[in-house]
Amino acid sequence: MTGSLLLKGFEIELFTGNPSGENVGIAAEAARALEGFVTEPDNRNLEYITAPEYNYAPLSEALLAPRRQLRAWLEARALTLLPGSTLSLGDPNRFERSNPGNAYHSLIEATYGTRVVTASIHINLGIDDTSALFTALRLIRCEAALLLALSASSPFLGGAVTGVHSQRWLQFPLTPSSVPLFQDHGHYIRWVDEQLQAGTMHNVRHLWTSVRPNGPSRPLDLNRLELRICDLITDSGLLLAVTTLLELRVLMVIESPERFDPFRASQLSPEQLQSLSDANDAAAARASLDAPLHHWRDGRSLLCRDWIAELCETVSPLAEELGLIQQLEPIHRVLQDGNQAMRWLAAVNSGATLPEVLQAGIRTMADEERGEAEQTGVLG
């Protein structure tokens, strides 16, 4: 089975704060003290990266072990890890620089302010063949909204209910503002060069979109697909389920591009596919599973949760063949019980306060790291 699967790696951004749920910045100190952690521009969150793996078996521990290490270090300072992808109880108007001397961070703060102060999961899949990579990128760009909907976990900002399920995705500055579905590697190289010359990208990393090509020397040397749209998923079982669904779709489009590459299997033009995908992403950020979306094949309208269920059915034969069918089970639970944002909002509507919701989420995160997590109740 290893030979059939792709390399998988994760970039995990986390917020730190008080056990009561308020954000507290300590990332610069943590990154100096702990190997494997790096800072983000704001001091209230930091990141770690997992080593690439083909098989799924080692990935849960790879995701949780750094959290245990960081949590122990934080607990010695009466701090903890926070769930959610926005400054739920923090000050959303004040930037807390992790490295005041970093010129690129200065540019980010001056250009975007605290819109970039979010936490998320980036999922990387290794694809060395650039033709296959850009084929996969087109399909995942058109289905990224579904993965955002499964992960949505940011319905709060600054101590208030925002009215949306992924405040993170709606506030984060997509850059450049218009990104095409790339025809091939050459198209991508030319487009990046044009953006750098125009100043809409400040460097080759400054492409902030739902999914992008990545590699050791962009834009020329590429070796992976990076999904960037997902909110923070603290439940490692759900994260691996989302990764499984993503990988199965990538394997399917590489094997049968005539059936799954939107440039070959859609009735819509490339420009229409770009507009449809961006609109779907925004709709999923607002209402996640209950969002009305439009399918990339023909533009027909359907509910997000129905499209996800349809997708799970489509990937099931390949999942069975690869021994991955059980790994998709957490997705079915989300379709039944709601994602984290929906469960949190249900708790608030039932009378819970935002601090109570976040404190329950903190306990759930800690329980999972101890191997005790059970998704019970609406607060988890």
Rank of each mutant, 00 (worst) to 15 (best):
L14G: 03
N102M: 02
L70Y: 02
L63C: 03
S60G: 06
L107D: 03
P355I: 13
A319F: 03
E75V: 02
I140A: 07
P262A: 14
P176G: 07
F95T: 00
R305L: 12
T244Y: 08
Y112E: 01
F260V: 04
T80F: 09
F263R: 14
Y112N: 06
E374M: 05
A285R: 00
N339D: 08
G9V: 02
H206L: 15
N18M: 09
S85M: 06
A28K: 08
A119Q: 09
I189Q: 12
P155V: 14
L238D: 14
L207M: 15
E53H: 12
S269K: 10
S88H: 05
A319Y: 09
Q326A: 12
A284E: 01
P262E: 11
N93M: 12
E247R: 13
R94K: 06
S288E: 00
A145D: 11
R212G: 01
G338V: 03
K8C: 03
D367E: 15
V204K: 11
D261K: 05
S288C: 05
T130G: 01
V24R: 07
E22P: 02
Q167I: 05
L207Y: 07
L196D: 13
L245C: 06
L345V: 15
R305G: 08
A241Q: 08
L318W: 07
Y112D: 01
A72G: 02
A309G: 10
A287E: 02
E255I: 11
L139Y: 01
L7S: 11
T86E: 01
A287V: 03
R218I: 10
P216E: 13
L276W: 01
N18F: 07
N280I: 04
L34V: 04
Q69E: 14
D193S: 12
S266E: 14
R205C: 09
T86W: 03
V250P: 08
G158M: 05
A291Y: 08
T364M: 08
L133H: 04
A62M: 14
R218L: 13
R94I: 05
N102C: 04
I49K: 06
E143T: 10
L107E: 11
E29W: 01
M365S: 14
C312V: 06
G159P: 05
S131N: 12
L268S: 13
G3A: 10
L311E: 11
D367S: 10
L81A: 06
F172N: 03
A265G: 06
F15W: 09
D337N: 13
Y112S: 03
D193W: 03
Q167S: 05
A282M: 06
R333E: 11
C312A: 07
L245Y: 08
E247F: 11
T209A: 14
V250K: 12
V24L: 14
A284D: 00
L81C: 09
Q267M: 15
N23P: 01
T162W: 00
H294L: 01
A132N: 04
A346D: 09
E329H: 07
E356M: 12
E47S: 08
N124I: 03
